[in-house]
């Protein structure tokens, strides 16, 4: 019996360990290629243990820090500012909706809920943002479309307010003469730290990782986030390798592009903050997945 369960435990561990390795190994390859010498990549391809190590790629990044540092600044700015704005807007919309006695209660709920079921799609969204609001090549393009607030989070926060903030507390504050907004800021929000932390974390990851808005609404390299720089490098390589037989300038352009190890180094710089911060927030992240699942 014990012999049998020991055997099972080994099997469980080895399957999980196998899958865990599969999850991690591409990152190892990425990091190792960024510290490989260019020659060993060309000779042997990307590998887990290069023939020759080299810090040249990072030295190159250091020398070209102007462009990359700027992109980093853009990414940090949209992550911080976008997450803060998102939390403010989400909670400000969700709180009144959570109140039992608010006029038109069902209407507000339907208004938010319907956005989860139906959307106009990319084309009208794109045209409205570019033609009506003219956000092309502005910082708003990275902050606003699609990311700033979503109905799902609003409903999640509303449910939290409804279940975790006792209405008696709100009523007591009202009777004591506290204004509605004061009650919201001084009583409701401090009680809602867990849900705010969870949603803030998800929003921050969303902003940090976003490349879609930059690719769609931004052509000015000064506004590129780190993800957009990475995306642009791939696009250029694809373009040049598809058209290399068309022009002789293509091959000289090709040599101006960052070398393979440099590309990998930029990608490392792009994921590293997440990988470093992950051990600290993984607990909340796992909790967040669970909250989202039970809606």
């Amino acid at each position: 019996m014990t012999h049998d369960s020991k055997w099972v435990r080994w099997l469980v561990h080895s399957v999980l360990m196998g899958f865990s390795i599969a999850c991690i190994i591409p990152f190892v390859l990425l990091i190792m290629s960024s510290i490989s010498s260019e020659d060993s990549i060309i000779m042997n391809g990307y590998s887990f243990w290069p023939d020759q190590f080299s810090s040249k790629a990072y030295a190159y990044l250091w020398d070209h820090w102007g462009e990359l540092g700027r992109a980093y600044g853009v990414t940090v700015f949209i992550t911080v500012f976008g997450t803060a704005a998102s939390l403010a807007m989400t909670s400000m919309l969700a709180y009144p909706m959570s109140r039992q006695d608010i006029p038109l209660k069902n209407f507000w709920a339907l208004l938010v809920f319907f956005t989860l079921l139906f959307n106009g799609g990319l084309v009208p969204t794109y045209l409205i943002y570019t033609q009506v609001f003219e956000i092309k090549n502005t910082i708003w393009a990275l902050l606003v479309p699609g990311l700033l607030m979503n109905g799902f989070n609003v409903l999640l926060v509303r449910t939290f307010f409804m279940t975790s903030v006792p209405p008696a507390l709100i009523e007591a504050a009202y009777i004591d003469g506290a204004g509605e907004i004061k009650t919201f800021i001084k009583i409701v929000l401090p009680l809602s730290a867990p849900i705010m932390a969870t949603i803030g974390l998800f929003e921050a990851i969303l902003y940090w990782n976003d490349w879609f808005n930059g690719m769609t609404y931004v052509t000015n390299p000064k506004l590129f986030s780190i993800q957009n720089i990475l995306n642009r490098i791939i696009t250029d390589i694809q373009f040049l390798s598809n058209n290399s037989n068309l022009s002789s300038t293509a091959s000289s352009k090709m040599s101006e592009l960052p070398s393979t190890s440099v590309r990998m180094a930029i990608a490392v710089v792009g994921v590293l903050p997440i990988l470093i911060a992950y051990p600290f927030f993984q607990k909340y992240f796992i909790k967040g997945i669970t909250i989202g699942a039970v809606k």
Binding site: M89, T115, N119, G120, V123, P124, I128, G151
Partner: peptide, 13 residues
Amino acid sequence: YLIVNNYLPMFGM
């Protein structure tokens, strides 16, 4: 935001 980001595009269809 919901009007700009969600409802206007619906009418834009």
